[in-house]
Computed example of a mutant assay.
Amino acid sequence: TDIGKQVLNEYGLNITRELVHSQPAYIEHQNKLKNKKEIDNDITEDQTFELTEKQIKDWFDKQSSDLSEKLIAKLRSTDPYQFEHMMVKLLNEMGYKGTNGQSVVTQKSNDGGIDGIINQDPLGLRTVYVQVKRYSEENVVGSPEINSFFGALRRKQADRGVFITTSSFTSDAREAAKQLNIALVDGEMLTNLMIQYKVGVQVSQTYELYDIDDDFFEE
């Protein structure tokens, strides 16, 4: 260093340990190391950063929120036909297929406005029709799309349907769906359901929080 060269030029072979330790730069460096060690000891001894149960919950909530954002971005970049299969699988995991029921994704062409069909019973007496829209965030679903889906349901003589989108619905669309017996799933609800039923996601780590069982000690 420049300081080292300066000391060498000034003292030559007379440089001693005491001389080095008396240099302002060396003293400043040692003080920084000492302060860091004291801070580390304080954290360990005082447990200043002990997490509360609420802080742990808030942290997990944030992880879930971050995962939802990543998941919706992934869905919006997925192949549309593959997206239809994913949504039918989600409804199956939610229990809509029923016992011994079956579900299909309609053909890409000539689907008549129906993307998926879920028969809740073996005879197909209770059927749920599904339409999905893999839309960007700004492409909001309005009432015309809901009315068009209802027209497709009437052609199937169906009385129920599920409309799923990766965007959101206008207030008019929600009002129309309420009147026409159509369940709506927007992007936020969709990612929450996928996380809840573990569709498209997997558990990377599990932590358990324990508390004293007072009833055990009262027996």
Rank of each mutant, 00 (worst) to 15 (best):
M86H: 09
M86A: 13
M87N: 10
V88C: 13
V88G: 12
K89R: 08
L90N: 07
L91N: 05
L91Y: 07
L91H: 02
N92V: 13
N92H: 09
E93D: 12
E93A: 13
E93G: 12
M94Y: 11
M94P: 14
G95E: 04
G95D: 08
G95C: 12
Y96L: 13
Y96V: 11
K97S: 14
T99I: 15
T99E: 13
T99V: 15
N100H: 15
G101F: 11
G101L: 11
G101T: 15
G101W: 03
G101H: 09
Q102L: 15
S103V: 15
S103E: 12
V105T: 15
T106H: 01
T106V: 05
Q107S: 14
Q107R: 11
K108I: 04
K108M: 05
K108E: 06
K108W: 02
K108C: 00
S109V: 08
N110P: 02
N110M: 09
D111K: 01
G112I: 00
G112D: 00
G112K: 01
G113Q: 06
G113F: 01
G113Y: 02
I114D: 02
I114V: 06
I114M: 03
G116P: 08
G116E: 02
G116F: 05
I118N: 09
N119Y: 14
N119G: 15
N119I: 12
Q120S: 15
Q120E: 13
Q120V: 12
D121Q: 07
D121Y: 08
L123G: 07
L123K: 08
G124H: 04
G124C: 09
G124T: 06
G124D: 08
G124I: 10
G124Q: 07
L125Q: 05
L125G: 03
L125R: 05
R126P: 09
T127G: 08
V128D: 04
V128P: 06
V128I: 11
V128C: 09
Y129F: 11
Y129W: 07
Y129E: 01
V130M: 04
Q131M: 06
Q131W: 02
V132G: 05
V132H: 01
K133L: 04
K133M: 06
R134Y: 05
R134H: 08
R134I: 07
S136L: 08
S136I: 03
E137N: 13
E137I: 14
E137S: 15
N139E: 07
V140M: 04
V141N: 00
V141G: 00
N147D: 10
N147G: 03
N147I: 07
F150A: 02
F150E: 00
F150L: 00
F150R: 00
F150P: 00
G151H: 00
A152C: 01
